[in-house]
C-alpha cells in the first residue's frame, strides 16, 4: 500500500531521516516510536507532501507521491492529524468536520452559485458529521468555535477530520498527547472501532507505548532517522535496542 524507499531528509546539515524504508500493508495498525528528534514527524511530513525528500521515494498504491502537493496526496487517500492540532479556529466544531470530505460540489467556484447542484450533498454531509460527532461524543460542543474547546476535544476533532476524509491510509501524530489517560484509552478504542468498521489502515506516532503496543499490529522503532528495530509489539518490546535507544548503551 505505502512504501517509503530509502528516504533521506536533512535540515541545514542535520540528518532527520537517513535512508529510511518502511512498508505499510492495508488493514493494519502500525506504530512508530522513537525518542524526540528521531524523525517520526518528518517522516509523516514527507509522506503527506509537506516536505520533499532529499533522496529516495514514496510509493502509494503503485504511484510515486513524493513529487506531489499535499492536496493531491490527500485526494489519493492519505490523511493525517498533527501533533499540535491545526484546526480552523474561527469555525465551529461542526464546520471543521464538514470541510474534509472530497469532491464537494459546493466548493467549486462555478457550481457554488447553483444551490440545487450542491444542497443535497451538503445535507448528506450533515448526516456524516452528525454520525462522527456521535462517535466522538462531541455533540455538546458541535456549534462551539473550535478555539473554545479543550485540548482533548481538539484531538478528537483532528481524529474526526480524518474520519470524514474517507481515506485509505490514516497517519496520526501523537493522537493522545496532552490528553488524560481515560480519554487516551477512549481515543484508541475509537481508532480500533473505525479501523474495524471502515477497514482503514493506520500509522500512529505515539509516546504512550502501553496503549500503542496493545493496539498496533506492527511497530517501527526509529532513532536518528533510521529504523533500528521493527516487528510485532512483543518483538520490539523485547528487543534490547529499545532500551538502548531510550536509556543509552
Amino acid at each position: 500500500m505505502l512504501v517509503v524507499d530509502r528516504v533521506s531528509k536533512s535540515f541545514k546539515g542535520l540528518k532527520a531521516l537517513d535512508e529510511i524504508s518502511i512498508n505499510i500493508k492495508p488493514g493494519h495498525i502500525y506504530g512508530i516510536i522513537g525518542p524526540n528528534g528521531s524523525g517520526k514527524t518528518t517522516l509523516f511530513n514527507i509522506i503527506t507532501g509537506v516536505l520533499k525528500p532529499d533522496s529516495g521515494q514514496v510509493i502509494f498504491d503503485g504511484r510515486r507521491i513524493d513529487v506531489l502537493e499535499p492536496n493531491s496526496i490527500y485526494n489519493l487517500g492519505i490523511t493525517r492529524s498533527f501533533q499540535l492540532p491545526t484546526l480552523w479556529l474561527n469555525m465551529s466544531v461542526a464546520e471543521n468536520l464538514m470541510l474534509p470530505p472530497k469532491q464537494q460540489v459546493g466548493e467549486n467556484l462555478r457550481k457554488a452559485f447553483f444551490k440545487k447542484a450542491w444542497e443535497t450533498q451538503d445535507m448528506q454531509l450533515s448526516d456524516m458529521v452528525w454520525q462522527t460527532l456521535e462517535t466522538l461524543r462531541l455533540k455538546q460542543v458541535a456549534l462551539n468555535k473550535s478555539s473554545e474547546i479543550s485540548g482533548g476535544q481538539m484531538k478528537l476533532i483532528e481524529l474526526g477530520r480524518t474520519m470524514m476524509s474517507n481515506p485509505k491510509l490514516v497517519l496520526l501524530d501523537e493522537p493522545t498527547a496532552g490528553v488524560n489517560p481515560a480519554l487516551a484509552l477512549e481515543i484508541f478504542k475509537i481508532i480500533k472501532e473505525i479501523k474495524q468498521s471502515m477497514g482503514l489502515t493506520y500509522v500512529i506516532i505515539e509516546h504512550r507505548y502501553d496503549m500503542l503496543f496493545a493496539n498496533a499490529d506492527y511497530i517501527y522503532l526509529l532513532n536518528e532517522g533510521k529504523v533500528v528495530s521493527e516487528g510485532s509489539p512483543e518483538k520490539v518490546i523485547n528487543d534490547p535496542v529499545l532500551a538502548e535507544v531510550y536509556l543509552g548503551a
Binding site: 503527506t48 509537506v50 502537493e69 499535499p70 492536496n71 490527500y74 485526494n75 490523511t79 493525517r80 498533527f82 491545526t86 484546526l87 480552523w88 479556529l89 474561527n90 469555525m91 464546520e95 464538514m98 470541510l99 474534509p100 472530497k102 464537494q104 460540489v105 459546493g106 466548493e107 467549486n108 467556484l109 457554488a112 452559485f113 444551490k115 450542491w118 451538503d122 477530520r161 476524509s165
Partner: peptide, 28 residues
C-alpha cells in the same frame, strides 16, 4: 451568493490555516 456556500467555507479554511487546508485537499 458566491460565499454563502461550501465554497466560502473552503476559502475561510484557507485563510485560517493554510497547511490544514492543503492537507485536506483544498489547493490554497
Amino acid at each position: 451568493k458566491l460565499t454563502a456556500t461550501p465554497y466560502g467555507r473552503k476559502l475561510k479554511a484557507i485563510r485560517d490555516n493554510e497547511l490544514a487546508a492543503d492537507i485536506y485537499g483544498k489547493k490554497p
